[in-house]
Nucleic acid binder design. Structure first.
Lengths: 241, 241
DNA sequence: GGATAGATTTCGTGG
DNA sequence: CCACGAAGTCTATCC
């Protein structure tokens, strides 16, 4: 990994065209040749970047044949001492960085990272609800998780106390897209005479008002899930055995 | 901006819980106190991070009162020399970095960045199509861009050669969501007796097969836009005046 | 400030 | 390898 702090300008051409005027920034060159351009603020997203796989070519001003005449009458922005030309292997996207003043330049070997270990995602929520389907109502039973349809799997298919089929869509945060998704599933499931009628249930840790309204309009029930409570039930149950 | 290369372990608790085992990584502390943890690969997304607004508190091992007894019988991973505790001001999300060995530690002042200048986004595509609405068919005319409805503005409302109203949704890349969005608009527009019947047109630089099928199923026409061609027409036209 | 839609999204996962 | 859904998404825009 190479870390450079430099006064530079940056140009990107690819999916879009973008330009960064001359300013002091952090440039990161990773082991795979990818480049990140960071400012001293904002969030984790760089101002500009090039994703791997790509190739970085560095040109020093001294090496440029016509350096002398170029330098004669140019804007300060173009009076660079080093130019980086980064080209994406597949898309041809190009990132050009012109370094006018290099304030810091270090390289260090990091090695391969063991990677992030996550916990608490939607999959876990789905597993917990499937294991505790009776929290939705007495005598409810699980048909199966990831019930397959032509346009993708429904999170949970269940039967309510009356033996009616219920398709459940689970989201961490319930927004309008989730209701649309469930609507498409219901349309398909209700075409199957062996299943129909199938009603919908939209389950999330929090459901936005607009999603609630849309769901209501389509006859879809909404349920708010309590992650900690579900986990609690699950722990309590497992302690019984 | 502070740049630290260190052998460290990282723990995050917030929306989810995540852990990074001991390894050598780049740690970036920005002027606003936000922290990024980068490995020497992957894309621009850090392995872990804390977004602003947040507070960073640094503890040196020497300062820890019970350092001696702690160090006596701990795992190498917990034999840290410095600990960073970063807490988000609003959400309370916490990032804890334990530095076991510091290989590099530099600080530098960057100043405020002038920011990125973009070109070629969806707005431009919309403007180009609005100016060249006749590319969709002879005698087509523009009613207006950003035609307002109760659930948001339709990109373009136009009239075809027969005087029929057409609602056009424009995307860079045509996917299923765009068809859903246009469907909602059409439902609303067709409730207006002064406009109805309104037909739909889905316009994008490229339309995915699944989106095409869904659009076809709903009687929505699909059109592939050629950005460069539209820009060319526009340039040619402006040269006439 | 909250909600919404787009992104050079990136990142998994499943077929 | 492609396609789709989720993300601690982030970011700009609009109301």
């Amino acid at each position: 990994m190479r870390l450079v702090v430099a006064k530079c300008s940056v140009d990107y051409t690819g999916r879009l065209t973008a330009h960064l005027p001359l300013a002091t920034r952090l440039l990161i060159v990773k082991a795979d040749g990818s480049v990140l351009v960071h400012s001293d603020g904002g969030s984790y997203k760089p101002l500009n970047w090039m994703s791997p796989p790509c190739r970085l070519r560095v040109t020093d001003r001294a090496d440029a044949e016509d350096a002398a005449e170029d330098a004669a009458a140019t804007l300060p922005e173009e009076d660079w001492v080093q130019e980086w030309d980064v080209v994406h292997d597949k898309t041809g996207d190009r990132l050009r960085v012109r370094l006018v003043e290099i304030l810091q330049d270090t390289s260090i070997e990091l090695g391969i990272d063991p990677g992030l270990q996550k916990d608490g995602v939607e999959a876990h929520l789905q597993a917990l609800l499937a294991q505790n389907i009776e929290t939705l109502g007495e005598d409810w039973s699980l048909v199966r998780r990831e019930y397959p349809t032509a346009i993708g799997p429904v999170d949970i298919l269940a039967r309510d106390a009356d033996g009616g089929t219920v398709a459940i869509e689970i989201k961490r945060r319930g927004e309008i897209d989730g209701v649309e998704q469930l609507t498409r599933y219901l349309e398909l499931l209700n075409r199957d005479p062996l299943l129909a009628p199938v009603r919908g249930m939209f389950a999330a840790q929090a459901i936005k008002p607009q999603a609630k309204v849309l769901a209501g309009d389509r006859g879809i029930d909404c349920v708010t899930l309590d992650y900690d409570a579900l986990r609690g039930i699950d722990d309590a149950e497992s302690r019984l055995f």
